[in-house]
Amino acid sequence: MLLIPCPYCGDRPEIEFRGGGEAHIARPRDPQAVDDQAWAEFLFYRTNPKGLMAERWNHAHGCQRWFNALRDTVSDRILESYRMGEKPSGGGSS
């Protein structure tokens, strides 16, 4: 079970969280102006990388806050977590 660092509460076990998939996929500002292909990519296309990945987590059984975390999908190591609207500190050194 992952130990996930909530930026508001600190390290908490994975069962307290709800995963939200890949992070930093911005919802188009004017969805009606986006063509079908671009909209489909926004909805469904994900990078699914082997290695570092920024992903969304919701501390559902805790503070209820959404935040982002940088996880290595090979080792499951979480390098850092950061609040919505923030950028990762650069991590990825490993």
């Binding site: 188009p28 004017d30 969805p31 009606q32 986006v34 909209w39 909805l43």
Partner: peptide
Amino acid sequence: KPDFVGKRSLARP
């Protein structure tokens, strides 16, 4: 309404 969650998708082919 200009937008709501799911509106754009209702026009998907």
